[in-house]
Amino acid sequence: MASAASANLNAVRETMDVLLEISRLLNTGLDMESLSICVRLCEQGINPEALSAVIKELRKASESLKVQKLPQIEQYCWKEWFLL
């Protein structure tokens, strides 16, 4: 039982390695942890399209966070929403 579990763990680790390699190839900019979270989300059936959009937006937001305060983001969001 324990050996089976460890074998499984190995397989998972290997898979994650492969994925990390691919991620590196594609220059996605994800680190191991983010990648594993993403993989888990994907495994739960989340739409990858949406997820990628979220990640991009988060990156953008974090960049702007460095220079801006929160209320300004809020305003920005307002604009974005009305553009819809």
Binding site: L19, I22, S23, L26, N27, T28, G29, L30, C38, V39, C42, E43, G45, I46, P48, E49, L51, S52, I55, K56
Partner: peptide
């Protein structure tokens, strides 16, 4: 799904 995610996050270095 995972592959698609990676693809959409990929960037030309």
């Amino acid at each position: 799904s995972v592959l698609y995610l990676l693809l959409s996050l990929s960037e030309d270095p």
